[in-house]
Design a protein around this nucleic acid. Structure first.
Length: 556
DNA sequence: GCCGTTTTCGGCCCGACTGTTTTCAGTCG
């Protein structure tokens, strides 16, 4: 099995390394282009190599064919390994800072003896960069911000990226004889956006089991650290609950539990001085006579207050979702055809999909010209005839231009069923300008949904400067919907702001923003964000059936 | 490094932005 993602990463890194070496920028672009081809197209690399079909693909010349073949056959690329040795690590790191490209990185490294991020940080703090031609006070500030963000992200991992690994490890632990119960707990179970480790709680029969687990862990090969905690089975549920909950929540919960007759001793849990073995967290809540609090919302004590009053709403679940909003097709920068995207959504049990490719200004992402829009609409109309009980809606992800305008003239905007408006350019505006820009887009009668409202990329890019609360209030005023973008790097709107949006009466749409049919399932990550934001099914517009969804959109 | 052809070398996407300039180079999407 070819690690396609890995190859894409290698090709991108080669491009960057070449730029840093100061080679012909077009050579670098050829590698970027190759990475892009692999990402967007449907080529099965293994088959293409075996069948000698690589040469048929535009963009894969002699050199790239050779390299791709080498990678497919050996899982490695010698050229890349050599290149890594030629380019200093420090130089590579420096160029990873926002607003530092290859040009500035080279200047710092070779002409100013700044050979690491630490040195770069110090130089900025000591105000030394402003003397270098091309640098100034403002850039110094931006560099510091970027370094800070990088530091804060260090040692943290995206929740979604860790899931498969975590579940696999857990399964293996459970198979060890003498392991009674085991769960991944902590941030993972509460669904925090990023994690620093896997916290695993295990109840064991006796001490000998520990060694068996340790032997298993020795074979564990991952960059994500493990934090194992052992307990006896009587206390398993208590500790599962404790380690899942946030600190604040837990403190209040313990107070309540102890005041209502629970006590914790070394051997077991006692209720009214009687030993108990809890089977589930639900049982724990039951004996305390309060409503069950799902793990996702054990963040602050408001949840506990509501639980005492039995007023925790029925949170949204996967099964409530009826349609998929915001996916890209190969008409812009997606990998699959409209048919393939629709078919996949149907297979997953959804009853409609909103195709929303990029708009004309997004040239880098193959944004649709007016002519293409019209052709795409014809294709959708034809496809709709082929599907029973499934509907494809004509959507667009329209850029919000710098002045807040949408990206097509009115007569074109009118032709879409659904318009999602998103910012994709000029991130460095002032807070008030950016806020105004987005509010202006919300005021357009053609806008239905605001896409990824803060533009953040988890662990990679902070949100653009924007007053998100003001935007949420504006969405409420103009009756517009806000997206929960489910791309694992975005999860934007964040759950904290989802809570605020609900308070203000704003409806949300849980959108996967998929660029291929395999990531439509990202939509289920969004359900977790929504749950963490206390949403119920009736807060989310794609919980509506196809007809009601369309009616709702048209009422905006 | 790729492509295409005016066949073996020249052009490759480019506009907006910005911090630094005082006309522009580097970065970004």
């Amino acid at each position: 099995m070819v690690r396609e993602d890995e190859l894409i990463k290698i090709l991108k890194n080669i491009a960057k390394l070449l730029e840093l070496k100061g080679e012909n920028p077009f050579k670098a672009r050829a590698y970027l282009n190759a990475a892009d081809i692999i990402k967007r197209s449907n080529i099965n690399l293994e088959d293409a190599v075996k069948g000698g079909k690589l040469s048929e693909i535009k963009g894969f010349g002699e050199a790239l064919q050779k390299k791709i073949t080498e990678y497919v056959e050996t899982g490695k690329l010698n050229y890349y390994e050599k290149l890594k040795e030629e380019v200093p690590q420090g130089l590579f790191e420096i160029s990873s800072i926002a607003n530092i490209g290859p040009g500035k990185a080279r200047k710092l490294y070779y002409e100013n003896e700044i050979t690491s991020l630490d040195q770069l940080e110090k130089a900025c703090e000591q105000d030394k960069l402003k003397n270098i031609k091309g640098f100034g006070t403002k850039l110094q500030e931006l560099i510091l911000l970027s370094i800070q963000h990088k530091k804060a992200s260090k040692g943290r991992f995206l929740q979604e990226k860790t899931t498969i690994e975590a579940e696999k490890l857990l399964k293996e632990i459970k198979l060890i004889s003498g392991v009674q119960r085991a769960e991944i707990t902590g941030d993972y179970r509460r669904f925090s956006e990023t994690l620093k480790n896997f916290q695993i709680l295990i109840s064991i029969k006796d001490e000998s089991v520990r060694n068996k687990i340790k032997a298993l862990i020795k074979k564990y090969d991952s960059e994500i650290p493990l934090d194992l905690e052992f307990t006896n089975d009587d206390k398993f549920i208590w500790y599962l609950h404790q380690t899942t909950s946030s600190k604040n929540f837990n403190e209040e919960f313990e107070k309540l539990a102890f005041s209502r007759g629970l006590s914790l001793k070394t051997d077991s849990i006692y209720f009214n001085n009687k030993k108990i073995n809890l089977k589930s967290e639900e049982e724990l809540y039951e004996i305390l006579k309060i409503q069950y609090v799902p793990p996702e919302i054990r963040e602050d004590i408001r949840a506990l207050e509501k639980a005492k009053e039995f007023k925790i709403p029925k949170l949204i679940s996967k099964e409530d979702l009826k349609g998929v909003v915001h996916v890209h097709s190969n008409w812009s920068d997606g990998k699959n055809s409209i048919f393939e995207m629709a078919n996949k959504a149907k297979e997953l049990g959804f009853s409609y999909i909103v195709i929303s490719d990029h708009s004309q200004s997004a040239a880098y992402a193959g944004g649709l010209s007016i002519d293409s829009v019209q052709k795409q609409h014809k294709e959708i109309e034809e496809l709709n005839k082929e599907f029973d009980d499934f509907k494809i809606f004509k959507g667009i992800e329209s850029d919000i231009l710098t002045d807040g305008a949408l990206d097509y003239p009115e007569e074109v905007l009118k032709s879409f069923d659904v318009v999602i408006a998103s910012v994709h350019s000029s991130f460095n505006m002032s807070k008030s300008e950016m806020t105004q820009r987005i509010i202006y887009a919300l005021m357009s009668p053609f806008t239905h949904i605001l896409g990824h409202p803060t533009g953040r990329l988890l662990l990679a890019r902070p949100p653009y400067e924007v007053d998100i609360k003001e935007i949420i209030r504006a969405a409420a005023d103009y009756g517009k919907v806000i997206e929960i973008n489910c791309n694992p790097y975005r999860l934007d709107l964040s759950w904290e702001n989802v809570i605020y949006a609900k308070e203000k009466g704003v409806k949300l749409s849980i959108n996967p923003d998929s660029h291929n049919s395999g990531t439509i399932t990202d939509i289920f990550l969004g359900v977790k964000v929504a749950r963490k934001g206390w949403l119920e099914a009736n807060d989310v517009i794609n919980c509506l059936g196809s007809d009601d969804f369309f009616k709702y959109i048209k009422s905006l």
